[in-house]
Nucleic acid binder design. Sequence first.
DNA 1: TAAATTCTAGAATAATATTCTACAATTTAG
DNA 2: CTAAATTGTAGAATATTATTCTAGAATTTA
Lengths: 206, 206
Amino acid sequence: MPTPEKPRAKTLEKKQKILGIALDCFVKHGVEATTIEMIKDASGMSVGSLYHHFGNKDKIAAAVFIQGMYNFGQLTRAYLAKVKDNHGSAKDGIKAIVYANVDWISDNPDWAKFVFHHRTTVAKGDSDGKLRNDINVFFSDLIEWFKPFILKDEIKQLPIDVISSLISGPTHDYARHWLAGRNPVPLKEHRETFAEAAWLVLRNDG
Amino acid sequence: MPTPEKPRAKTLEKKQKILGIALDCFVKHGVEATTIEMIKDASGMSVGSLYHHFGNKDKIAAAVFIQGMYNFGQLTRAYLAKVKDNHGSAKDGIKAIVYANVDWISDNPDWAKFVFHHRTTVAKGDSDGKLRNDINVFFSDLIEWFKPFILKDEIKQLPIDVISSLISGPTHDYARHWLAGRNPVPLKEHRETFAEAAWLVLRNDG
DNA sequence: TAAATTCTAGAATAATATTCTACAATTTAG
DNA sequence: CTAAATTGTAGAATATTATTCTAGAATTTA
């Protein structure tokens, strides 16, 4: 087994900085078109160091992706935790999820662009399934929250993955177009619309 | 200006065949990881010919993308035309759009995978805006169809791009996960669910 | 049927990713 | 505190892959 290396003091923050720079390059030119040399020049790092830290270009991209997903996950958990603390309703929870999506995407457009366009790319390199697992854990947290409301018939009896798509689908679709410059009106301006729409499709009775 | 070349007899079908083979490679390995040599070997074509016909790798990808979008557009138009012919309601039209999406994605999963993941990539190379324009034309056809129903207040007064995301968002989101193997239940099984959901959010009054 | 055009082939070149080797900096063990 | 041991840096060397180029074959046009 590969010895688990112990990083030096400032290594982690240095790596984080590189991820930010790599993100800039990736978003500006796309992963394929950004060369290691670009990242090297922009970060003032040597090629050797980059490879020492990340292994190869795909793994840099993977690290960027994971960083982004992690931050997004944190925000969503925080929003849901607040609902939980206030003993919020099913409606509050569903709207909170939409809010978390809209807010994170709006506040981190570059990360969002990257995350939207590179899940597949990154999944390929996830040989140990670590990423997959993290996402599953995140997902089961969400399910935990939903279950009681579904059981109480406040939310429609639908498969969880369908529920998930009904909640996030419209927001993500609009976000993609907005981030790409095809939709001029900022996502944030439709926050309430998408939140209410999600509740409208998922609530039981009308 | 670049002389508009006149292709030879079997050139077009040869190019189409290559696009299919390229799609296979792209879907199996991703655009970045498929080499020109792979496409060369799989198609029995020479490197020179590939470059003669397509210019470079990005343009092969662009051609694949455009082919896919074109086919999808055709299907959607056909579905909507049928509704028009039968003097269908707003509900019929909105459900038809969802059906077109679900059916095309289900019947052409590889094309769908590619189209979903490479719009951005391709948009970068669309210097003359031809692709952009085609999509705009397609979009305005849709808008034309919607307008009367919005005016008659059968459909909610919302910006067209929001309407578009509310109709297609959930289907596309689910499709992405299904195509990536994360959602095991085929998209088609939720066709009616997503179609009804779209109508539920968009209809006026409840 | 000859000239013009389009297409094919594969070698030559260029751009880029990755590996490797030597050394520098930091940490750890005693 | 000091000497291994470990981790990080640098840049040259190598390997892979994209792209260009040249010559000629096939087809079309006039």
